[in-house]
Design a protein around this nucleic acid. Structure first.
Lengths: 205, 205
DNA sequence: TGCTAAATTGGGCAAACGACCAAGTCGATC
DNA sequence: GATCGACTTGGTCGTTTGCCCAATTTAGCA
């Protein structure tokens, strides 16, 4: 039967508050998330929020950073372990296509970026997470023979977020449309191209 | 000395409220801007805010959309009137370099994007402004002989916003670094290199 | 069987919120 | 000088905010 102990339920409440926070940030906006809103949605009393977290800001920050870390560690299809560069790009763009720009995941990222401009501690955490992702991206690009992998990774990461943000406002910008454009960034330095294969309408999935 | 009439001062107050709104949106975040905050900063009484505007939301929406329209109509260096493609790109990247990602202008854009995901009327206005900018960009790219100008313009516009947003978190991503990467987008697709001109630079009409 | 600490409740606080309004101040027009 | 409408004031409405806390319940340990 495994009846949960108090401590276990406590940990579960904390986890649920973090989960609810991510959804509410995307739904209402970072600064519009309130104590009672969180408690309501999580099915607990408002007092519990300040028992588990020192402040609403702290709760939101922890929720956002851990969600971003989790996602970037696992979700983008492990592009850098793909057997070929074109397969890696395919995975990356496929992942991009799974987001509309209006989904909680995408909105959480942008909300967190903005919140980080007003909170030094949060900025430190997020920029570290982002730097690590850029680093993975740059390593992979370097192995693909792409020129200037660091700058390319930075632009590519930024472009992905930008495309998601713009797509929220004007849908119709599908991954299959932007794939050929974005893959021009991968154009190898003069002389070393060959394993590159971006022709023939990359139609992910 | 032209003494301002009551009606003129009224118009001035309205204009000042719009101006202050833009700054406060960037500074505190869209949903955190309050009636009293606006009145305080504008040097007027709180009651005036709801005399000139039907609601705070309406004030913020009008402030953001008109500021975005003004900026996109005039500021990006009139890239599309440049005498050459490379000069146009230079103007565009120069403009990009004038923003840190933390300046009120950049933050206002991102805040407005997010607010638009929660306000249908605002989304309509903003996506129209954005669509017009993309259209100008696509026309110019088409004249430069860039393949798939529409999709390229969409990706380029998104990438610009993305770079600004990322730069707010990790400075050091300067325009001169990203210029060579971004300008690869202007090159023909990787598979058709050689058929067109050699590099992405200099393609006189 | 008591004891302690963690978890939870529900109420309460001062402050700030958006919106509204009656009263008063103006400048332009008659 | 009187009148009218646009503009401005200062205050109030009910609601919601973040945070706090005394009291209560529970689980694990002595």
């Amino acid at each position: 039967m495994a009846r949960p102990t108090t401590a276990e339920r406590g940990r579960e409440v904390r986890r649920k508050l973090l989960d609810v926070a991510c959804r509410l940030i995307a739904e209402r906006g970072w600064t519009a998330v309130s104590t009672r809103m969180l408690a309501d949605r999580a099915g607990v009393t408002p007092g519990l929020v300040h028992y588990h977290f020192s402040s609403v800001q702290a709760l939101l920050s922890e929720a956002a950073t851990s969600a971003m870390r989790d996602y970037l560690d696992q979700a983008p299809g492990l592009f850098d372990q793909a057997e070929s560069p074109s397969r890696g790009l395919e995975l990356l763009l496929g992942e991009l296509d799974r987001h509309t720009g209006l989904d909680p995941q995408s909105l959480l990222f942008v909300e967190a970026y903005l919140a980080a401009t007003r909170d030094d501690a949060l900025r430190g955490e997020i920029s570290a997470v982002l730097a690590e992702f850029r680093s993975r991206l740059a390593d992979w690009l370097g192995r693909c023979g792409v020129a200037d992998p660091d700058a390319t990774a930075a632009v590519l990461a930024a472009a992905i977020d930008g495309v998601l943000m713009h797509r929220a406002l004007s849908p119709g910008l599908r991954g299959s449309d932007i794939a050929p454009v974005l893959s021009r960034i991968f154009a190898p330095a003069a002389g070393e191209r060959g394993q590159h294969e971006t022709e023939g309408t990359g139609d992910p999935e």
